[in-house]
Design a protein around this nucleic acid. Structure first.
Lengths: 136, 136
DNA sequence: TTAAAGTCTCTAGTGGACTAGAGAGTCAAG
DNA sequence: CTTGACTCTCTAGTCCACTAGAGACTTTAA
């Protein structure tokens, strides 16, 4: 066995990513085995490790695998994807801001509703819970 | 056709909820048809309308259908679910606070990363994008 | 009576990132 | 040569709230 190539179990051990997930990533085209043993075992270059670190890092920053794949495609064309990464992250902050807005609005609504929750429950008016009236 | 009963299309028209969704809700046990026509068409009591309003309202406040179902079950036992609704909403604010924390932390991380983004891309060091080092 | 509109059941697909299991084949060491 | 660890492919399931489609039947109005 060529000492510089890694079997999938070794990749799992060194990356912390489960084997089925690695195969799943391969299916998506995020990583690929450089070769197979005669018996069909995947052999990975050690270069797969920084690649997986990149994937995990961007995933932890909120990027989807599809977005990450686009960035890896740039890398695979021989370019440094840093500028594109920066773009993706900027865009992600915008989505994040939007999402934060929504959740904060929801929180405001919930807090207000709970603040004004009556001490005594109003009479049943056929609406399941009469406190929950205002549906704007 | 008994004038006080509604066919599913009328429920859709008056609630704004799509027919397949209504059937889906029925499957989950959130609503039920009081009877069927001889030909098998569902007939709903008009009471389904406040019930659907309740569902939509709580859904808009972030509750899952499973949580809503638990509240409806209280109603169906003949009790006012207001106190349980209040509890659910309180709990939801907590989950929401947690989620907001996470997203804000993520935003901080993203902002910091972008703030400190180098004007000139560092040399390629085999990590796909050398700017993305710190993976704590 | 017929046509159009409405409704039925049932199955399967969506998105996103996996996870689980069956059943078979492979590799390295003893 | 056998054992045990490792790996393979393939299918299917998870979560959640729907959505779409096929093919058949019912209802109502003209």
């Amino acid at each position: 066995m060529p000492y510089e190539l890694l079997l999938i179990g070794q990749v799992q051990a060194q990356s912390g990513i489960a084997i089925p997930t690695l195969r799943y990533y391969e299916g998506l085209g995020l990583i690929k085995a450089v070769s197979r043993t005669p018996g069909g075992f995947r052999q990975f270059s050690p270069q797969v490790l920084p690649r997986l670190a990149f994937i995990k890092r961007l995933q932890s920053l909120g990027l989807s695998l599809a977005e990450i794949q686009a960035l890896l495609a740039i890398h695979d064309r021989g370019q440094l994807p840093c500028t594109a990464v920066q773009e993706s992250l900027k865009q992600k902050t915008q989505v994040l801001d939007q999402r934060l807005e929504e959740l904060q609005e929801l929180k405001r609504e919930l807090d207000e509703l709970l603040d004004q929750w009556p001490a005594t429950t109003p009479a049943d008016n056929g609406t399941i819970c009469p406190v929950l009236q205002p549906v704007p």
